[in-house]
Design a binder for these strands. Structure first.
Lengths: 225, 225
DNA sequence: GTTCGTTGTTGACACTGGAAACATTCCTGC
DNA sequence: GCAGGAATGTTTCCAGTGTCAACAACGAAC
């Protein structure tokens, strides 16, 4: 851990990841960041990163991995601050997800960046197969078992909850939420109303939501007409 | 519309947009597609596109614009197939959104691709300021006025609904939904359960969802600890 | 103190987006 | 008909990119 010579950098790998993250933050997007600029920011030649990463994707993947670890810690911390009731934990989970995305948009974007050309996303970068999501699913199941979350089956509730907070996070950090001149309180209100709507629903009484087409063909919805 | 000479292509602009879309579909992502390959696929030199588009972003923006137009038509068609009741139209809107994303993932991805470096997204590419969303907001307000959608204020319901279907769409086409070996019926079930959950909520009785932290500091949630 | 594996550098390569200069075709006014 | 722009496409060039191979400096082990 001591200071290294000018030639051997010491902990180049981590500094490359950090620099990459910085540059993504600055340019607001993973694309546009170039490997050569990352290297030069750390003060190293343009081919040095290849001693630590297989290629550019591999570096970005490291950033994403770091992001998932951060999200895990972030969420655990929030859950530990609740009163421990399953429903409280469920609410805290949703709030933590949105807060994380807003607090760390660069990480969040890289984490959910669409996979590139040929490559299938490496398994540890698929949130739905991670420990993080297993724990969330268990949490929802727990709530369902105890009768504090009802309606659909646990898997569907999990999907819906994730969709809700993920959609909000994505749209918010993508600047699609009329975020001009929005103060802290307004954002808090938005997040809370998202969770409230999820929990309370929007129907006044018994019936389900109609979504069926009266005149459409149903056999294949691949094509609209 | 007649056949043109070999030199003057005829309708190069549209063919470029079409070729770009094809290549995005094939590589499953807007990045990786190169202007030169697009040009060569259409059978034209690599600088020809610059007669019709300012730069690469401009071409992609044209694809996005086309996508929004498609979404608009798609949605209108679906709405017209309902019985006309506000709530039916609301349900149809949500279903149409998810169906569109799944049927046209390449378009959808480009439409909601994060904006590049310096550029602020041109106004007609911001869905939240488009005619499409004005109409959706009006639809929600109508439902709210008639008492068939209750709970939060119309703006919040709009936000929540959009978040829900957008999140599902994003996660689904990003292959985060354990989509392996999923048949048509299973997908239909997923979409319906999303809408049902939105409408009915998940609570068993009166109270709201707890989301407050018991021990956290609230003044600034920018940093987790 | 030599040797060897690790880490960093230099130089090359094919490819990219973009600009400038040139070529071909279309359209319009006479 | 036919000149002469205005469009549209092509060629040529450039800086910058990701990646690789060959080389150089360092640290540790015998």
């Amino acid at each position: 851990m001591t200071e290294q010579t000018a030639y051997h950098h010491g902990n180049l790998r981590e500094e490359l990841v950090a620099a990459a993250l910085e540059m993504i933050q600055e340019s607001g997007g993973a694309y546009g960041v170039t490997l050569r600029k990352i290297a030069s920011r750390v003060g190293v030649s343009h081919a040095a990163p290849y001693r630590h990463f297989q290629d550019k994707k591999d570096l970005l993947a490291a950033v994403a991995r770091q992001g998932f670890d951060l999200l895990m810690d972030w969420t655990r911390k929030r859950l530990s601050e609740t009163d421990g009731e399953p429903l409280s934990r469920f609410g805290a989970w949703g709030m933590a997800y949105m807060d994380f995305a807003i607090a760390h948009p660069a990480h969040f974007r890289v984490m959910f960046a669409p996979p590139e050309k040929g490559m299938t996303l490496s398994e540890d970068l698929r949130p739905e197969s991670s420990q993080y999501f297993k724990e969330f699913q268990d949490l929802v199941s727990d709530c369902h078992d105890k009768g504090v979350l009802v309606g659909e089956d646990p898997a569907s509730i999990t999907r819906a909850a994730w969709s809700m907070v993920h959609g909000f996070s994505t749209l918010f950090i993508g600047n699609h939420m009329e975020t001009t001149g929005l103060d802290f309180q307004a954002v808090t209100h938005m997040k809370r109303s998202i969770l409230t709507t999820f929990y309370r629903g929007t129907r006044p009484d018994g019936e389900g939501l109609p979504y069926r087409r009266t005149a459409g063909k149903k056999e294949s919805e691949k094509e609209n007409p």
